[in-house]
Design a protein around this nucleic acid. Sequence first.
DNA 1: GTGACATACAAGTCTGACTTTTTTGCAGCG
DNA 2: CGCTGCAAAAAAGTCAGACTTGTATGTCAC
Lengths: 233, 233
Amino acid sequence: MSTPGRGLHGHVLDTLGPAITAGEYPPGSVLRTDELAQRFDVSRSVMREAVRVLESMHLVASRRRVGVIVQPASEWNVYDPQVIRWRLAGADRPRQLRSLTVLRSAVEPVAAGLAARHATPEQCSELTERALGMVANSRGHRLEQYLVHDVAFHRVILNASGNEMFARLGDVVAEVLAGRTHHEVMFEDPDPAAVTLHVRVAEAVREGDAARAEKLTREITEGALQELDILAP
Amino acid sequence: MSTPGRGLHGHVLDTLGPAITAGEYPPGSVLRTDELAQRFDVSRSVMREAVRVLESMHLVASRRRVGVIVQPASEWNVYDPQVIRWRLAGADRPRQLRSLTVLRSAVEPVAAGLAARHATPEQCSELTERALGMVANSRGHRLEQYLVHDVAFHRVILNASGNEMFARLGDVVAEVLAGRTHHEVMFEDPDPAAVTLHVRVAEAVREGDAARAEKLTREITEGALQELDILAP
DNA sequence: GTGACATACAAGTCTGACTTTTTTGCAGCG
DNA sequence: CGCTGCAAAAAAGTCAGACTTGTATGTCAC
């Protein structure tokens, strides 16, 4: 997954990025380019490129005569897919999954409503297909195959919304769903009620019923919130 | 605003970034590092760093023996604040403002609901203060002062939600609100109904009424959608 | 036409020297 | 004793040139 080792500077990033996002270097820590270059056994040019990328993610800031300063988490570009991946691979994975699930609960219902208005016939077809795929794999511990359809289903919704900002969250949703299947709850077959909701969302979108698509999707995401014990009193 | 000219590579980015996001180089266009370095009168090292940053934003992809390939817009990291700024400064500013407003309409109501649960007394105070500031500047063409309080109000909501993903959208919302005041509609005083809604949101948050805070905020964002003629049939 | 091979091109890497900015610390002065 | 200002040092920033590596493309044999 992702884009592994596209050059030396990529390897440096794959090591430094996770280390920083994992909090191994507390905010305010100062690193020196030369020292880092030695540590990773690369030239300064390569290290500078890596630092520039980290800087563009606001993970670090580079100041003359001082060095490369690790930034507090509040500065990070938390929507950068690379940063998201690094954080999901690290220690605060649970916290990250919660944040992203809350984001989902805000975005996906609205996206579904828009999808009901804008979805092409092809998108409607794939949506139905994916929902049926989920039904077909909802029993008998076929979790992996279920996941494939689940991810595809939500991707279609986000793409069909016609909003590029929503569409770009497809990868995020994929990560969250995969994370749930692989590391969190869902050791047994998925909740039948959730499966049914997906089928009904596909119906609503196909019929162009925006309000119903939104409401049904809200039920789905509220289920996801409850799974992570993010509740409303 | 932003982070201007932090070095030569920053200057290159400030020129190349807007050019690419404006579509001056159609997707698939191939640039060569050496040629670019000459054009900007910088060394290849500097140009490489700039290309690396553009690459991390998925604006371009660099392939050996080929060159630097401009990526289609569907690949861009549209949540990168830098990319957002570049696009807002360019030709498809209207489209961008619409996308971001739709995103607001999804996120802010949920954020308000969470804020009602998690806001600290200090945040409640500032919220009320900002709402009153909006009221005080809602008449007599004091648009700039109104804007300051409006932006601050929404920032507090997003921060008080306790969700870092939401909090990081503060800058985006600021851009959208500023864009509306400076370039779009709102040549006259703001809608009194909207002002009242802000006051009531502050009340709801203060009282911890999540459902009401969410509903009221949804009314605010729906108003914003209508201003941009993004409607439901 | 299909395969293997040679070639050339552009990114990638490394090195060393130089410049610029900014912190720090010391000296001199009030 | 404390303040100002100058000098020195440290680290990022920049540059130029040589070399390496991967990879498209074209060529030739089969």
